[in-house]
Structures are given as structure tokens and as C-alpha cells.
């Protein structure tokens, strides 16, 4: 029983981490008023870049850095189009995902199905061997710890620093922020690039740790689930953590049910996370007042300084 619980928790942590990383990045972007629907595409490009660079250089550190840059590079395309050229954010985000799908399969065409290098686990001597707590708390790879550290840092940044206050102001009323003299566009660029970097990180976690290989379309909708998570969390960091682990749990459940041989067709069980996302969105969104109170007021609206 203890063993089962341990492996359950370890698996849920693994399934939740990419969601939490990507959603943390999108949270910052949306808090600044930018709705980037390209998370799925940025994750795919991050996943393939990280895998290929690790494969060539043999260094997971370089692979992770490359994935961060690749994600941010994708976000830069989005930023130039939506922030400088004022293109529609919904359509541009969608274009980013379509482009990311094609671009990632082009980049990874010679790497499909090759067993890849795996991110090493941080084994702290002594601690990881403590029964139950050891394997649950210690012995993960660095990205898992990073996902918690970055979410905590994000929460602290947003609500405990002056810069975070400015970022939220830009997201709530870009005209007022501009009138006071804050550089709305520059702040939005920074927030969107951070979102892209985090999506790249989420992607490389998929291809170096979660299932260490590259396969076309391997992100399988997690980018979209991360977007739904931000709504689920009503743009609050703590609830982002709850949501990521809730969805990680559902994803693990669908794998688990297939594993123990319950006679349910595996394709139908695989649909659980997507159906779960819909159910959760409905439950959260029906409270219109709560969405209205928490959603950044300028979310998705283009800003063009007239004066």
C-alpha cells in the first residue's frame, strides 16, 4: 500500500510538472494583458529543440537552455505581430501553434523514436532513502524543483514587488498605466517572452524527462490544458498549483486505468483529461462574477499609444 502510494505520488508529480511550468508562464503573460494561445506550439518547439541540442552536445544543461531560448523565440514572433503590428491575439496565437507543429516536426524529422538522454535525478545521499517521504520529496530531476521555485517566485513577484504591481496595472488598464508613464509595450514584451521561455521549459521536460524521446505532436494538447488551467485558477498562483496537480492526477489516472487492465477501451480512457478540462472550465466559468473580478481587464486587447 505504501509502495503504491509512493509510486502514485511520484507519477502524479511527473504528469503535473509540464502543466505547471507552462501555466506559470502564461499566467504572467495574461496578467500583463496578453492572451497567447500559442502555448502548444511553443512547447513543441521547446521539446524538439531541447532534445536535439542535448542529443548533439550531450549536455542536458545546454538542451534546457536551448529550449528556453526556442520558446522565447516563438513568443518573440507572437509579440512582434500582436504588440508592435497590433494583430489579433487569438488568431496569432493559433497561427503560432499551427506553425510550431510544422516547425517542430521539421526540426525533429531525423530524431523520431530515438531513445534520448534523460535528465539526471538529483539524488541527495541519505534523504532519498527515507521511506515514503524520500522518494516523494527527493530524488526528482531539477525541472520539478524548478517548477515549484518558479511558481513561488512568480507569486512573490506579482503580489510582493513594485514591478509586479506595475505588470498587473498594465494588464488591468493599459491606458492608465501608459498615462502614468509606464512602458506598456515593453512590459508586455517581457511578460510574453517569459511565457514563451516557460513553455519551452515545459516542452523540454516532456522530451528529456517525462518520456525521454521526440515524437511528433508529443505535447498532445498539454499546452491547451495549461491555458485552461489559468482560467481555472482565476489568475491566482496558488490555485494554479492546485489545478496543475488536479490535471496531473487525471492524466495519471487515465494511464493507470489502462495499466491495471480494467476492461475499458484505452482510447476512451485517454480522452479523460480533455473531458476533465471541459468539466472544470464549465464549473469555474459559470460564476461570471468571479471571472470578471479576477480576469485582467485588458486581457487580449491591443494597445496603441495615441499620445
Amino acid at each position: 500500500m505504501m509502495f503504491f502510494l509512493t509510486s502514485l505520488l511520484v507519477s502524479v508529480i511527473a504528469a503535473s510538472t509540464p502543466l505547471m511550468l507552462a501555466a506559470t508562464g502564461e499566467l504572467i503573460a495574461e496578467k500583463a494583458g496578453v492572451l497567447n494561445l500559442g502555448v502548444e506550439g511553443m512547447m513543441l518547439v521547446g521539446a524538439v529543440t531541447g532534445f536535439v541540442v542535448t542529443h548533439i552536445t550531450g549536455s542536458t544543461t545546454l538542451g534546457i537552455l536551448a529550449a528556453i531560448l526556442a520558446g522565447a523565440g516563438m513568443a518573440l514572433i507572437f509579440s512582434v505581430l500582436t504588440l508592435t503590428i497590433l494583430a489579433n491575439q487569438i488568431a496569432t496565437g493559433l497561427a503560432l501553434t499551427l506553425f510550431g507543429k510544422g516547425f517542430s516536426s521539421l526540426l525533429g524529422r531525423n530524431y523520431v523514436g530515438i531513445a534520448g538522454p534523460t535528465l539526471p535525478k538529483l539524488d541527495i545521499p541519505g534523504l532519498s532513502t527515507i521511506p515514503f517521504l524520500g522518494p516523494v520529496l527527493f530524488g526528482h530531476d531539477v525541472l520539478i524543483y524548478l517548477s515549484f521555485a518558479l511558481l513561488a517566485a512568480t507569486a512573490w513577484f506579482l503580489y510582493r514587488t513594485h514591478a509586479g504591481l506595475i505588470l498587473r496595472a498594465v494588464g488591468d488598464s493599459h491606458n492608465a498605466a501608459h498615462a502614468i508613464g509606464y512602458p506598456v509595450i515593453r512590459i508586455r514584451y517581457a511578460a510574453t517572452l517569459f511565457g514563451g521561455a516557460m513553455a519551452g521549459l515545459a516542452g523540454v521536460y516532456m522530451s528529456l524527462s517525462y518520456s525521454p524521446m521526440w515524437a511528433e505532436d508529443m505535447v498532445a494538447g498539454r499546452g491547451w490544458i495549461a491555458l485552461a488551467l489559468v482560467v481555472f485558477a482565476a489568475w491566482r498562483p496558488f490555485w494554479l498549483f492546485v489545478g496543475a496537480y488536479l490535471f496531473g492526477g487525471i492524466m495519471y489516472l487515465s494511464l493507470y486505468v489502462q495499466g491495471i487492465g480494467i476492461p475499458v477501451p484505452s482510447a476512451l480512457v485517454s480522452a479523460l483529461p480533455y473531458l476533465g478540462t471541459i468539466v472544470v472550465l464549465v464549473i469555474i466559468s459559470r460564476d461570471r462574477r468571479r471571472i470578471r473580478l479576477n480576469q485582467p481587464a485588458s486581457l487580449g486587447k491591443p494597445f496603441h499609444a495615441t499620445a
Partner: peptide
Amino acid sequence: GIFQGILLF
């Protein structure tokens, strides 16, 4: 896919 994405961009 790349052609289609770039065209939309």
C-alpha cells in the same frame, strides 16, 4: 504546415 503557419503570420 510551415508554409500555412507563415502565411497566416
